[in-house]
Nucleic acid binder design. Structure first.
Length: 644
DNA sequence: CGGCAAATACTG
DNA sequence: CAGTAT
DNA sequence: GCCG
């Protein structure tokens, strides 16, 4: 979710005051307090697509101290702008202006200081009520009052051009307040959020975010601590931990709960150490794919690119084939190819290939052949005439390997053959739709369009019940520039005694009325659990004036019980390979992971592995972090979970 | 030689 | 329910 | 296909 959206969710959460330990003389006391009460912040993170863990934590930090975080910049309401872009010590004016929708820094009203995060951190309780410096009297959490002292804003001014803004710089007291009522010249954040993810957003983050994070890590390792610092700030969780009390106070929506309790790390404790830990993990963890944060897409100069190409070609041939055998071959190839792709030097012999874990005798022989001849005969052998046709048929939604081959052996060769039911083949309703929209379904959509459709669906959902938790997952959440489909998760907190029961049905009919949903592919079945259901269909982006773009897009809408949201997030965010690895690791550890949670003590009958003798008991499900932690998998942002 | 992820929905 | 697809 |  974006920073704006997160700020919005925060507003719904109750404020439970944080506590701080205060040493007064020889005794230590715990104070509940609302250090930041009466402040209204707008937080500039520079993160266009999502709020990072760090951003969320800082927003939480403000929230549980009584401060308000505006979801959109509003010069009328805001008292402080926090600029916390990539490098916290060197705020980015360009990013700030873009986020605010302004042209010049001077468009910000003079009474609104632009400060670095450090300023927020400077707030301290004054135990003896000593009134000196920049102090304020604020409510404590119990109806009383306490004294708070913090640095003057100018001491932590984000931009030299604006050190004068706010209090303290010169004690002029008044008359600057209404100078430039700074109305936004361009769009406000709220307005731009409307057309969210359209053009601008994608220009900035055009490609895979994973590439960025990857490059960042790489640079960091070469250049040294300074850059590692920058990178780790952006891509891992290392925000200042709110005081321990915050973890009971944060309502369940907060995904960071368990992490906070585990890592009481002061801000940037030891970036180098963190990096070493990562490196160590990568080295020794010959274990599970999910353990090592994405190190792929180092596509530039892979010394074994030719080998990778040939093996991939062969893998794709097997992928189209129908047998169980081929399925596992593909599984195996994908693993070995990944290893070869990240192998640092040119492979020169069978032996060398064979020594790579995941590369067995057969693959090593193939590599040898490629090294010697530059070709792979097996490709020609596997590339039978049926493959193209079967591949074509498999592009029809609802048609897999088996049906594709059945149709082929029935003599069908083209999509028109299928449309005509040539030789009496059967085509199901769903397949008929798949046929009708063959091109649409097989074309990935720009990220921005996925965002637009999501926004529209979310708007409708929230109009049905404003308390719904609605998130977009899948490749969108992984930061991809294009999306094959749209995965939407819906759930709802139950603390007010209500649930999202019945919402999906209403939502679907509403979306149908709006003309957003055009075709149904599969309808949910609420028989077991009214809170858990899956819908699949085809939708179009909300039509705009004079624009006839109505390419049908695959949409999946899922609902889960609120308790399961963490597990569901993992499950539906993927990617596929990452998930399989995660679940494999869970199994090896004696657990079982599915979209509802992480279970212990699951017993499967040895005969029919599909049947669980014992369901086991759930040990985690509410947050992604919790599940990662129990599985001993280092936290990875969605865009770092790319394995395929 | 068995395991390799795990669940839901549709079809017949 | 088994087989298929997602 | 690879692994234990």
């Amino acid at each position: 979710m974006t920073a704006a959206e997160y700020a919005q969710t925060l507003q719904l959460k109750p404020v439970v005051p944080a506590t701080a330990t205060v040493s007064g003389g020889d005794s230590q006391r715990k104070w509940r307090h609302l250090l930041l009460k009466d402040f209204t912040f707008f937080y500039v993170s520079g993160e266009l697509t999502y709020a990072s863990q760090s951003t969320k934590k800082r927003m939480d930090y403000i929230h549980c101290r009584g401060g308000i975080v505006l979801p959109a910049y509003d010069p009328e309401l805001v008292t402080h702008i926090i600029v916390d872009t990539a490098n916290p010590d060197k705020p980015d004016a360009g990013v700030t202006l873009r986020t605010l929708g302004l042209k010049k820094l001077s468009d910000i009203p003079d009474h609104v200081p632009t400060v670095k995060w450090k300023w927020v951190n400077s707030a301290k309780l004054v135990p003896n009520g000593d009134r000196a410096g920049n102090f304020r009297i604020v409510e404590d959490g119990n109806g009383g009052h306490v004294t708070v002292r913090m640095d003057w804003e100018f001491m932590h001014s984000a931009f030299v051009a604006r050190v004068h803004a706010g209090k303290g710089f010169k004690n002029t007291g008044g008359n600057e307040k209404d100078k430039g009522k700074g109305k936004p010249k361009a769009k406000t954040t709220a307005q731009r959020k409307e057309g969210e993810n359209s053009e601008e957003e994608d220009n900035d983050s055009a490609e895979d975010i994973s590439d960025i994070s990857c490059a960042c890590r790489l640079i960091g390792s070469v250049v040294g601590v300074r850059l590692i610092f920058v990178c780790s700030r952006n891509f891992t969780q290392d925000a200042p931990s709110p005081p321990p009390s915050a973890k009971e106070t944060t309502p369940a929506v907060n995904q960071t709960k368990s992490v906070q309790s585990e890592r009481e790390i002061p801000f940037i404790s030891d970036p180098l150490g963190e990096f070493e830990a990562l490196a160590k993990e990568e080295k020794k963890a010959e274990g599970f794919l999910c353990d090592a944060p994405n190190s792929n897409s180092l596509t530039s100069e892979c010394p074994n690119q030719d080998i990778v190409d040939k093996l991939e070609e062969l893998m794709e041939l097997h992928r189209a084939k129908p047998t169980e055998e081929d399925k596992w071959r593909v599984y195996s190839y994908s693993k070995s190819i990944r290893k070869i792709r990240t192998y640092p030097h040119r492979i020169t012999s069978y032996e060398e290939a064979r020594n790579i874990p995941g590369v067995g005798d057969k693959t090593a022989l193939k590599i040898k052949e490629i090294l010697e001849t530059g070709e792979l005969r097996r490709i020609d052998i596997e590339y039978t005439e049926d493959l193209d046709v079967v591949h074509l048929f498999q592009g029809i939604y609802g048609v897999g390997q088996h049906i594709a081959y059945m149709w082929y052996s029935a003599g069908c060769r083209t999509l028109d053959d299928i449309r005509e039911r040539k030789n009496g083949i059967k085509v199901s309703d769903v397949q008929e739709i798949g046929l009708k929209y063959y091109d649409d379904i097989n074309t990935r959509m720009p990220r921005a369009e996925a965002g637009e459709i999501f926004t529209a669906i979310k708007r409708t959902a929230v109009s049905i019940d404003p308390h719904l938790y609605v998130e977009i997952m899948g490749s969108y959440r992984r930061g991809k520039a294009t999306c094959g489909d749209i995965d939407i998760l819906i759930t709802r907190p139950t603390d007010d005694g209500n649930s999202h029961e019945g919402v999906l049905a209403s939502l679907l009919s509403a979306l149908q009325r709006e003309g957003i949903i055009r075709e149904n592919l599969s309808m949910p079945d609420f028989k077991d659990d009214p809170l858990e259901a899956v819908y699949r269909g085809l939708c179009v982006r909300p039509l705009r004036e004079g624009e006839g773009h109505d390419t049908k897009r695959l949409v999946h809408i899922l609902t889960v019980p609120y308790k399961s949201r963490g597990a569901a997030l993992i499950y539906y965010t993927g990617d596929d390979i990452f998930n399989r690895s995660l679940r494999l690791k869970a199994n090896k550890m004696g657990y079982s992971l599915n979209q509802r949670g992480l279970f212990a003590g699951v017993v499967r009958s040895t005969e029919n592995k599909m049947i669980k003798t014992c369901d086991g008991h759930i040990i985690a499900s509410e947050t992604e972090q919790e599940i990662f932690r129990i599985l001993g998998v280092p936290w990875q942002e969605p865009w770092e979970r790319v394995r395929s």
